[in-house]
Simulated assay, not measured.
Amino acid sequence: MKYTVCSRGDRDSQEISQKIQQYLDDFHLELDAEKPEIVISVGGDGTLLKAFHEYSHRLHETAFVGVHTGHLGFYADWQPEEVEKLVTHIAKTPFKIVEYPLLEVTITYYGQKDSQQFLALNECSVKSTEGSIVMDIEIKGELFETFRGDGLCISTPSGSTAYNKALGGAILHPSLATFQVAEMASINNRVYRTIGSPLVLPQHHVCLLKPIKDADFHVTIDHRTLIQHDVKAIQCRVAEEKVRFARFRPFPFWKRVKESFITG
């Protein structure tokens, strides 16, 4: 089996990464950073997000597993003291593949500029570079509302516990093929009106964000923020691609939610 290790870069993560590589070398697994079958992320959820985007071009061939060296994360579920157990599993145990949906974001522009397409594991957020944004929101080709406010967050189910939750969005089980649209400080009065609640859209629905006036936008795809000019529309939908996680033991999602937000 071909593998690679992605580290957060701090001392503890580097030491654990080197230990994992040494153990896997002893089991005669092949280190291959270009075409790995399994990517071992050592750090936190942010480290796994970066690893996902580094290998997003080969999601059908690559699975991910995370070792956390800080706070317990939703993606990094193995602890540093379990490294030997994890390595033994990787080397000797056929692992189960769990697939979770992703968000496909397509940005189109005025003029001759080609459209751009992105995949998000957690979310895409849209904000203006100056002041509020004003956008028509279309669902399945029909105008739903005109949004005025600080911005919008469009999240995957597995990303629903991140920025989406901070905005009052619902926590969704990551196996659901949906995406969620949450508002950031919408303007609601007698003149302007939005739904005021997060929207959960199914796999066959497409959400289109169309700026009312010319403006520059901060579009964030997971950890990466891009300044976008001359935006005609931002289309969001459940992607055809899925992220694949290598599972060697049960991974109870609701237990993780409880541990992260209730019992500590």
Rank of each mutant, 00 (worst) to 15 (best):
T161Y: 10
G151C: 01
I195G: 01
A185E: 06
R237T: 03
T220F: 05
A215I: 06
G169E: 07
D230R: 07
P174F: 12
L199F: 00
V238P: 05
H204F: 11
C153G: 04
D150W: 00
G196A: 01
K210G: 08
A185N: 13
R193L: 01
V181N: 14
P202H: 14
G159S: 10
T161H: 10
L201H: 03
I187M: 14
D216E: 15
Q235R: 10
G149A: 05
L152S: 00
T220V: 05
I212T: 11
F217P: 13
Q235A: 02
F147D: 06
P198G: 02
A177T: 15
F179Q: 15
H173R: 11
N164M: 04
S160C: 10
A170T: 05
Q235S: 07
C207D: 02
Q180W: 10
P202L: 11
F147N: 05
I234L: 01
P174C: 14
D214N: 12
Y163A: 06
P211K: 06
G151Q: 02
R224N: 06
L152H: 01
F179D: 13
H229Q: 15
L176N: 09
C153M: 09
D230E: 15
A239H: 04
S175R: 09
A185W: 10
N164I: 04
L209A: 08
T178E: 14
K232M: 13
Y192I: 12
A233W: 07
G168V: 10
A162P: 03
L176T: 13
A182S: 15
E145P: 01
V231R: 09
E183W: 13
G149I: 01
H204S: 15
I195A: 06
Q228R: 08
C207T: 02
T178N: 14
K165Y: 15
F217I: 06
